[in-house]
């Protein structure tokens, strides 16, 4: 099997661009295919979210496999919320035989935030121990040390939240980042960044690890969205001048996309790539990329 294209992209030192495709609730993949094909050749890889926000939908394993078939490099997101270590390892083996080479390890939101709040939260493993499991599978053994007949060759990534608000939360993010690297994370993508100054500070600290970081960006659609995120999403802090700008804009879509491209231009010198989370604006991602001069 050839190496992960995402890995190659990092190795080539190019500025890496990834996007996101959220599977829908149901079996109709028309829209998904449309979005995926629009992103093809525009981005280095596409993240496939795993029951995002704990809302039950089509699985990330199946969709990642579909992307492989369409010639798009998937990043298979795996959360620890819904499966125990037996199911997680098995799904990872399945992913390997289905041609998936990139895995992103996540803890996963609590079921209480989704559409099945009565569900049992699993969290048998966590984002760190899952990475070490992936490392083990790559070495040809399961987490009990039992040998595998045929091993995986995953390129594993993880997430970090540079906007953690208190000293404790921030230091713990750094600490967990270190643990994730030790457990086999080869790159990071971040929570949405809006303040390049804050991000620069974080990168100064993270530089020492020599692990590529993709800055997360979410295009703003309205002032309401910005305020909602500031209030509810941990680590997201949209500065007031950005809120004012979008709220005063006549054509909010145009302004939102421009602001996103501008932000990417400012972040570019600080990190190794961007991860664009378009949240419904997936079809506009090529526009953002172009305007950002990538």
């Amino acid at each position: 099997m050839p190496n992960s294209k995402l890995k190659q992209a990092f190795e080539s030192k190019k500025f890496v661009v990834t996007a996101e495709a959220g599977p829908l609730k149901g079996t109709d993949i028309t829209e998904l295919e449309l979005v995926a094909k629009l992103l093809k050749d525009k981005v280095d890889a596409v993240n496939v979210t795993d029951q995002q926000s704990s809302v039950m939908r089509l699985g990330s394993l199946a969709v990642s496999h579909l992307l492989v078939g369409w010639g798009i490099e998937p990043i298979y997101q795996v959360t620890c919320r819904d499966r125990n270590r037996i199911a997680l390892q098995s799904d990872l083996l399945s992913a390997a035989v289905l041609g998936i080479q990139n895995v992103l390890s996540l803890t996963g939101d609590l079921p209480s935030s989704g559409d099945h709040p009565q569900a049992k939260p699993v969290y048998d493993l966590d984002s760190v121990s899952l990475l070490s499991v992936i490392q083990g599978l790559n070495e040809g053994k399961d987490m009990m040390g039992n040998p595998l007949v045929g091993k995986t060759d995953f390129f594993a990534g993880a997430v970090v939240n540079p906007g953690a608000d208190t000293e404790a939360a921030y230091e713990l993010q750094i600490l967990k980042m270190e643990k994730k690297i030790a457990a086999g994370a080869k790159y990071f993508q971040t929570q949405a960044i809006y303040d390049p100054g804050l991000f620069e500070k974080f990168m100064k600290r993270a530089e020492q690890y020599k692990v590529p970081v993709l800055a997360g960006v979410i295009p703003l659609k309205s002032a309401g969205m910005a305020k909602f995120m500031n209030k509810n999403v941990a680590g997201v802090n949209v500065p007031q001048d950005m809120i004012d700008k979008i709220s005063q804009a006549e054509d909010k879509t145009k302004t939102g996309l421009e602001m996103c491209s501008d932000l990417i231009k400012q972040l570019k010198p600080l990190c190794q790539g961007v991860h664009i989370m378009a949240i419904g604006w997936e079809k506009k991602v090529p526009q953002i990329i172009e305007a950002a001069g990538l």
Binding site: P121, Y123, D126, L172
Partner: peptide, 12 residues
Amino acid sequence: KSLVNGPCGGSK
């Protein structure tokens, strides 16, 4: 989430 290896990213 009974996490033993550090917090999730959701702490606010």
